[in-house]
């Protein structure tokens, strides 16, 4: 399984993601500069977290014009996997590869802490190692993670089982108190209609080693690795 991690000016989880894939999970992993257009022959492209272009104007608004985005679009059209984590998710939304948009957190503050996620759909390339309903402990760290979408499109997401993670409590109950940012329908992660592009606000790369309080992020990476082998 070969992974590519895209570096935009202002990415700051690029090395963390690379570290988990390569050093912890032993997968072949390369970096791409945002101006690259050749995705070599990677199976999965990851857009990591950070503040691409400082998140100036809007999160992801400038990064979506990077040359690599055209190649990523092509990669997705071929049915290959694309993952956006946090800022990467926002960039994929701006680029139209994933639905919805992120508003400022309802609490108007940056929030960094562990949250609980309920796995809503384990029939995707990103969640096949999880049990249906499995609760994962993974941290968030964002200022704009308040998922917003029109009512009609939300109904479509629900109907197509595109919502793969919702914020929940430790028992897996999706309750308003467990929603850290005001996201509509407690959405923490979604896939596109075809199911090969995934975005999530929580950071699985920060929860993939015993030393870092949780290893639940590995379920997501392992799902991707499983899928190909």
């Amino acid at each position: 399984m070969k992974f590519g991690v895209v570096i935009f000016p202002g990415s700051n989880c690029d090395h963390d993601t690379h570290h988990v894939l390569k050093s912890v999970l032993g997968q072949e992993t390369v970096f791409f500069w945002h101006q690259d257009t050749d995705l070599q022959d990677v199976d999965t492209v990851i857009l990591p977290g950070g503040f691409a272009y400082g998140d100036y104007l809007r999160c992801g608004a400038i990064a979506k014009f990077s040359p690599i985005l055209e190649s990523v679009r092509q990669h997705a059209q071929e049915g290959k996997l694309v993952v956006g984590i946090c800022n990467g998710f926002q960039i994929l939304q701006e680029a139209g590869l994933l639905p919805g948009v992120m508003l400022r957190n309802a609490g108007l503050k940056f929030v960094c802490r562990h949250v609980w996620l309920r796995t809503e759909n384990n029939q995707t390339p990103f969640t096949n190692a999880c049990q249906e309903g499995q609760v994962l402990k993974i941290p968030i760290a964002h200022n704009e993670g308040n998922f917003f979408i029109s009512k009609q499109e939300l109904a479509e997401l629900q109907a197509n089982q595109q919502i793969i993670f919702r914020y929940s409590d430790a028992q897996g109950d999706v309750i308003p108190e467990a929603n850290p940012n005001g996201s509509m329908d407690s959405i923490a992660g979604v896939v596109n209609r075809q199911g090969n592009v995934m975005g999530m606000m929580p950071h699985p790369e920060r929860a993939s080693e015993a030393l870092l309080s949780s290893e639940d992020g590995r379920f997501i990476f392992n799902s991707i690795i499983n899928r190909v082998h």
Partner: peptide, 16 residues
């Protein structure tokens, strides 16, 4: 206070 700080990026924070 510290919840407003990203205290985990770089994945080296062994004690929160």
């Amino acid at each position: 206070v510290f919840q407003q700080y990203d205290h985990m990026v770089q994945t080296n924070t062994a004690i929160l």
